[in-house]
Nucleic acid binder design. Structure first.
Length: 935
RNA sequence: GCGGGCGUGGUGGAAUUGGUAGACACGCCAGAUUUAGGAUCUGGUGCCGCAAGGCGUGGGGGUUCGAGUCCCUUCGCCCGCACCA
């Protein structure tokens, strides 16, 4: 056999393990390259052909860069804490560690089949105590740090304590959140301090009081917050784990509930997370998702007095204070604190009814899309700060309680929603833009020129806005303000299978427990206790290690995945999470490959933790992933049969319309070219054993088909193990890359794999014929063979440099086709060809490299360089256009100058024929490309 | 509604800075070979036309000697966010 892929792949897989081919070490004399895959959650289902796509792509680049002389770090590991293993544990009593271990073993065996160049000695697992020890350590540092906006970095809480004891909290610009304090803390903050305290007051506080105050400054803090509680899963979910009111995993209902939770003050980093996006090479769509998620808006916070409520004011955030002259009413969210206070007697019943109605229908209606404007007048009025005019105060559910201050100043001439509200309730629309027809809709164009706006008349937004922000602030009724949509992240989960917190409580005060590692305890069941405490509360000897009790919650799935890329650099370090010398050497991930579904989760949190670790001086860079590529999904091609209703008769695709039919998925292994294997179908499932068929004119049963997501229930899953068995790993690797651009979603088509398999076979035949005789010899290659080789090297190199994985396979195919035609069997050609093939088909490349007498492993073979002089042909063929249409081909010496070419082509008889007596107006010669004659 | 992306043969796709549109494959057609296997080899294959030639990158318009590529406009599809003040 000329291409015995099975023997070849077994042989080299074994050698690589034996010789530790893929182990890497730091080497200061060499340039590094770090290629990383998003590590998988080891699910029980195993891999389908879609999963390895990104791994193959990153492996190709890792191997290419290594051949180019880089010291390449290309590790793999497992995100092994998570819900499915826990769910399985609840059902079966099986410890999640055992399930996880088994799934990892299965994953590993499947990955090993594909010939990846991972350095497995660096494997990490987030659920291993040696790993989560450092996740806990990072948490502890977050607990011990706050964020100083003046210094624009994380700063130690102990520094803050000494500042407090010297001068209270005056003049500090640290990130804090008074609204997330617990009751005692809010009491202290509001009643005792009114937001400000002196050194004297601070020094007089007891341990619990100080803890309450400091909590408002910590980056990891405890707060009574509204959380997404999922009763079915018995746990809290982060916002990005809730989709349309249902849990992302399992689709269970989620409700809002107030709970005391650990939180992460990611909002402190909002600005840096936003700015950092400009410096990284990610897809515009993911950057945009993150920008939207952070949702920064700049403007003013304005205060409006309320008629008849001296001392009370309504605070409003606006990005367009320059339109203040057009504001003629206020709108509060129905949940706003002041609604109850200001509603007048005659409007109270209506207000109460509207508030109740909003509360009851909020969930479902929020999803319903556009509803008409609803709202209700409170009867109260505010005072316009510039004109003193009375402004009616309304409530409406288009104003969200959770954003800004939960109140807006309505400018119907400038905001479409305000305009619609004004129209719906017959409120006036004061014009504030020159030439604007207020009946036609709001003026959203920022280039519109203001009028009826006092000193700002004649200005556009660009000039008026900064003045408005400054002047309203100077006038004393507003302050410049930046608002974010980003919320702090909930960091507690009521689960078993996650990192335990290194925290105990003493008199209700949380303290770090760090002189020994807090390990995940054994429990008798993986469910909450009868009191509703999380599963960890069941652990009898564990739950009081110090103080009164341990923290029973565990950390969310994203904790371990927020820093794993660092641990690969120094995976076994017992003294620190990653030695600074190692992280300085390996640095940022140069290429990160993974799915796009983590835009607001993993990819935001890991940026946040990276910036924090940078602030602490633990690493020297503050963005983890310099460049990222998101692979598209590989879709399955499902096949369908059509059962005539109420019978066991199946009708072929074309004739199905003549019957009332039911469409059923059929296993794709029973279908070839849309034609059903009838006997196979009958044997597939018992109920089809006596199936009858209505066939088409060729006597065949033709199936319908559709491209959908791969899933077991659709019987359209292609399994990589089977394909490796039939075609070999090298074929599968090449084929997955050949399918199309990596980032694009594309359907899987098993038939196409034959073409790629044939290519590798044809390539093998250059080296060894069907009888197994070696054809490689030391003769001098023909110019055609050399040209084919160097053309291929050039194309493959350039394509890999621009990460165009799919076109590389085409280039190799063309090269092999040309070399076959040229009968090239010379070592001088075939040895570099093997090196060029190595990133895509490493097993076969090793075999052929060895066969050519190459030294060492092809993995370390120098990447071949193309020789431009070998590419030059004596003559160039020019397509000759007349008025833009190609009429004939014209050969001319390569070294002819453009004017020589012009003269030669004009002298050609075919040119005369095309011109038919006319004289050319213009002749364009693009050297090496094209000739265009106008005339 | 807003944001991002994409529309090229029967299919996946190629065309990197404007320079022969459809490379490379799949599929299909024809032939060869082979005691039917999901094998191999050769040739053909965008559309119309016998041909010369014409038409062709969702549609319309423009810039240019030349447009899949740039500009304007319009239609359709996919993804994300969704009343963010």
């Amino acid at each position: 056999m000329e291409y015995d892929f099975k023997a070849i792949e077994d042989k080299w897989r074994g050698r690589w393990v034996e010789q530790e081919t893929y182990a890497v070490k730091e080497d200061a004399s060499r340039k590094k390259f770090y290629v990383l895959d998003m590590f998988p959650y080891p699910s029980g289902a195993g891999l389908h052909v879609g999963h390895p796509l990104g791994y193959i792509a990153s492996d190709v680049i890792a191997r290419y860069k290594r051949q180019c002389g880089f010291n390449v770090l290309h590790p793999q590991g497992y995100d092994s804490f998570g819900l499915p293993a826990e769910q399985y544990a609840i059902q079966t009593g099986q410890h999640p560690a055992i399930t996880t271990e088994r799934n990892i073993a299965r994953y590993r065996s499947q990955l090993d089949l594909l010939g990846f160049s991972y350095d497995w000695s660096r494997e990490v697992r987030t659920s291993s105590p040696d790993y989560y020890r450092w996740t806990q350590w990072i948490f502890a540092r977050l607990f011990e740090h706050g964020y100083d906006h003046a210094a624009n970095k994380a700063v130690s809480i102990s520094d803050l304590e000494s500042l407090f004891s010297q001068s209270g909290n005056a003049n500090l610009d640290w990130a804090f959140g008074e609204d997330t304090l617990n009751e005692a803390g809010q009491e202290l903050w509001g009643a005792a301090f009114d937001g400000h305290f002196t050194a004297l007051q601070w020094n007089a506080l007891d341990d619990a009081g100080r803890s309450d105050v400091l909590m408002a400054y910590r980056l990891a803090y405890l707060a009574d917050s509204e959380v997404n509680w999922c009763p079915a899963l018995g746990t809290v979910l982060a916002n990005d784990e809730v989709i349309g009111g249902k849990s992302e995993r399992g689709g269970h209902p989620v409700v809002r509930k107030k709970m005391r939770q650990w939180m992460m003050r990611i909002t402190a980093y909002a600005d840096r997370l936003l700015e950092g996006l400009d410096a990284i090479d990610w897809s515009e769509s993911i950057k945009e998702v993150q920008r939207n998620w952070i949702g920064k808006s700049t403007g003013s916070q304005l205060r409006f007095d309320i008629e008849g409520h001296a001392g009370r004011q309504i605070e409003v955030f606006s990005t367009r204070p320059d339109t203040l002259h057009g504001a003629n009413f206020l709108v509060l969210a129905p949940e706003h604190d002041l609604v109850d206070l200001i509603a007048t007697a005659d409007q109270r019943a209506a207000v109460d009814a509207y508030v109740a109605e909003t509360a009851s229908r909020s969930e479902r209606d929020r999803m319903a899309g556009d509803r008409g404007m609803t709202g209700c007048f409170t009867g109260a009025h505010a005072v316009h700060p510039l004109t003193g005019d009375a402004m009616p105060i309304w409530i409406a559910d288009y104003v969200l309680a959770g954003y800004g201050t939960g109140a807006v100043m309505a400018v119907p001439a400038g905001d479409q929603r305000d305009w619609e509200f004004a129209k719906a309730f017959g409120l006036p629309i004061p014009p504030i833009f020159e030439g604007h027809d207020v009946e036609a809709g709001a003026e959203s164009d920022k280039r519109a020129v203001l009028c009826n706006s006092g000193e700002w008349d004649g200005l556009r937004c660009e000039e008026a806005l900064p003045r408005a922000i400054a002047e309203t602030a100077a006038a004393g009724f507003a302050e410049p303000r930046v608002n974010y949509r980003l919320r702090d992240a909930v960091f507690s989960r009521q689960r078993y299978w996650g990192e335990p917190f290194p925290v105990y409580y003493e008199g209700g005060v949380p303290k770090l427990l760090e002189d020994q590692q807090v390990l995940l305890p054994e429990v008798d069941a993986y469910l909450p206790t009868e009191d509703g405490d999380p599963p960890l509360a069941r652990a009898a000897h564990w739950n009081v290690q110090r103080g009164d009790r341990m923290e029973y919650n565990t950390m969310p799935g994203w904790a371990g995945s927020s820093w794993y890329f660092l641990r690969y650099m120094d995976p076994h370090n017992p003294a620190s999470l990653c030695d600074r010398s190692k992280s300085d050497y390996w640095g940022q991930v140069d290429l990160y490959v993974g799915g796009a579904e983590h835009g607001t989760g993993h990819l935001l949190y890991s940026r946040f933790w990276t910036k924090f670790l940078y602030d602490l001086g633990l690493i020297g860079f503050d963005e983890p992933f310099a460049k990222m590529i998101n692979q598209g999904m590989i879709l399955g091609r499902s096949s369908f049969v059509y059962r005539v209703e109420g019978t066991n008769t199946f009708v072929s695709f074309e004739q199905r319309k003549a019957h009332r039919t039911q469409r059923l998925h059929v296993d794709i292994s029973l279908v070839k070219n849309d034609v059903l294997d009838l006997e196979g179908f009958k044997a597939w499932r018992p109920e089809f054993a006596d199936a009858a068929f209505i066939l088409d004119e060729h006597g065949q049963y033709r199936c319908g088909s559709e491209v959908e997501k791969m899933s077991k229930s659709k019987y359209n899953v292609e399994n990589p193990d089977d394909l490796v068995e039939r075609y070999g790993a090298d074929t599968l690797r090449c084929y997955e890359m050949f399918l199309g651009p990596l980032e694009q979603a594309k359907p899987w088509d098993t038939q196409g794999i034959n073409g790629v398999h044939g290519f590798l076979r044809k390539l093998s035949r250059l080296y060894r014929n069907a009888e197994g005789e070696v054809l490689v010899h030391d003769g001098t290659p023909s110019p055609e063979a050399e040209r084919a080789l160097h053309k291929t090297i050039k194309k493959v190199t350039e394509d890999l440099d621009r990460l165009s994985w799919n076109t590389v396979v085409s280039a190799l195919m063309i090269g092999v086709n040309e070399l076959t035609e040229a009968g090239a069997h010379e070592r001088a050609v075939l040895q570099p060809l093997a090196a060029t093939l190595a990133p895509y088909a490493p097993h076969l490349a090793e075999e052929l490299w060895e066969l050519c007498g190459g030294s060492g492993s092809v993995v370390d073979a120098d990447w071949p360089k193309w020789d431009a002089s070998k590419l030059v042909e004596a003559e160039v063929q020019y397509p000759v256009q007349f008025n833009g249409k190609v009429r004939f081909q014209f050969s001319v010496a390569t070294d002819a100058s453009p004017s020589d070419v012009e003269a030669a082509v004009l002298a050609d008889e075919r040119t005369a024929k095309q011109l038919d007596g006319r004289s050319p107006k213009k002749v364009i010669v693009v050297p090496g490309r094209i000739i265009n004659i106008v005339g």
